[in-house]
Structure formats: structure tokens, C-alpha cells
């Protein structure tokens, strides 16, 4: 399958994501520049980590107005797989493709560390290679990763099995230990941890690969 990795000015995990899906997984991938209003013939989109547009105003707030996000919204509305990682997650909540918001970490510190995630559902195109309850070792690196939403929205996410990952030990104050959520159609994922940084033996963990292998399996089923 072919992944499209969106590149915003200030993205800095775009090459890591590209490397994870091509070199580590043997799939095709191409970069899509932020001012393109077309995604081309990609089967899935990755919004990578970084500091899009300097994270000015709010993280992801300027990126949501970029031409490529119009194409990403349409792609998602048509059922295409979209995974937003870290800054990509922030862009997805700012764009309204995912509920809630990501605010300054409760401890105010930029947290950069490997931690453990629990797979909260295996019923998604991003976690089908896992079992519910599996624990993955994946790094985080963010200053604004505290997930917040109204109680009503959090209840709805739980009732609809739309929490993809939870932190075993909450690093940032996220409500209900949420590390990743799905949209209602289950084809859009946002997560603060970096699966692409746990995708090569050199990185000390291969656990992040399961997110991408799940996407490959889901895309194969679609075809």
C-alpha cells in the first residue's frame, strides 16, 4: 500500500514516519507538501509530529487552515485512513476531525521518554494487529499533550469504544489516561505517543510497528 506523509513547515517526524513504513515495513510512501490541495493516489495519510507553523497561536491551529487539510478532510470523510501522531493529533483535534483538545501538560514540563501504553481496543484499522490489553513500549515527546474534553464527550468515547490507547502511568494529566482516540467512523486516529520512533531495532522497541501493520492489514481488506 502507499502511505502519504504530510509535510508542514516545522514537521520533524515526517522522515521517521516515512522510514518506518518503507524501510521497516516494506510499503510505499510519499511526502505530500502542505500547500498541495490533492493527496494523489495514497491509501492512507499520516500527519507527522513536529511543530507545524511553529505551533504559533496554538499547536495545530494554523495547520488546520492549510490547503492539504481540505484534502485530508475529504479523504477522511470518504473513509480513508488518517493517523495523526503528536502534532498530527493536535492538528486533527483543531480541525474538528477528532473531539477534545490537547493543552499544556499538567506538570508544565516537556516530557520526552519511553513509556507504556495499553491498547484499549483492537477494533480499529490502527490496532487490529494487537489484542485489547496489550502493553506497548512507545516514546512520547510533547509539551502540550494533556487530552481534555467535556465529561459528556469522554463518556461517549468510552461507550463507543473509541479510546485507542491509554497511558499505563499518565505523563501529562490527560483525562482518563487517554493517549489516543478514534473518530466515530473509526478511520481517523490521533495519538500523542510516537509509534514511528519504536519501529526499528536500533530504537530499542518495535512495538510501534503494530499501528502501521494494522493499517496495512485494514487497507488490504478494503481492496
Amino acid at each position: 500500500m502507499k502511505f502519504g506523509v504530510v509535510v508542514f513547515p516545522g514537521s520533524n517526524c515526517d522522515h521517521d514516519a516515512w522510514y518506518a513504513v518503507t524501510r521497516n515495513l516494506g510499503q510505499q510512501a510519499e511526502f505530500v507538501w502542505h500547500d498541495s490541495n490533492r493527496l494523489g493516489d495514497v491509501d492512507a495519510v499520516i500527519l507527522p509530529g513536529g511543530f507545524s507553523y511553529g505551533d504559533y497561536l496554538r499547536c495545530g491551529a494554523i495547520a488546520k487552515f492549510s490547503p492539504v487539510m481540505g484534502a485530508v478532510k475529504k479523504f477522511a470523510a470518504d473513509g480513508g485512513l488518517v493517523a495523526g501522531i503528536c502534532n498530527g493529533f493536535q492538528i486533527l483535534v483543531e480541525s474538528g476531525l477528532l473531539p477534545g483538545a490537547l493543552v499544556r501538560n499538567a506538570g508544565l514540563k516537556f516530557r520526552c521518554m519511553e513509556l507504556q501504553l495499553t491498547v484499549a481496543t483492537s477494533d480499529s484499522p490502527f490496532t487490529n494487529a494487537c489484542r485489547k490489553g496489550d502493553v506497548l513500549r512507545v516514546p512520547i515527546a510533547h509539551g502540550e499533550g494533556c487530552y481534555v474534553a467535556e465529561e459528556r464527550v469522554l463518556d461517549e468515547l468510552e461507550a463507543e469504544d473509541r479510546i485507542a490507547f491509554r497511558y499505563v502511568k499518565n505523563p501529562n494529566g490527560s483525562q482518563r489516561d487517554i493517549a489516543g482516540v478514534l473518530n466515530r467512523g473509526r478511520n481517523v486516529l490521533g495519538m500523542m505517543p510516537h509509534p514511528e520512533r519504536a519501529a526499528d531495532p536500533l530504537m530499542g522497541s518495535l512495538d510501534g510497528l503494530s499501528v502501521f501493520t494494522s493499517m496495512v492489514a485494514a487497507a488490504a481488506l478494503k481492496k
Binding site: 493543552v103 501538560n105 506538570g107 508544565l108 481534555v148 494529566g173
Partner: peptide, 13 residues
């Protein structure tokens, strides 16, 4: 400004 219901760790600090 942040809504009253949203934690403001910077203000607290």
C-alpha cells in the same frame, strides 16, 4: 482565556 473548567497549570505556577 481558558474556560474555568479547564486546568491552567501556568496560572497556578
Amino acid at each position: 482565556s481558558l474556560k474555568k473548567t479547564v486546568l491552567d497549570p501556568q496560572g497556578q505556577t
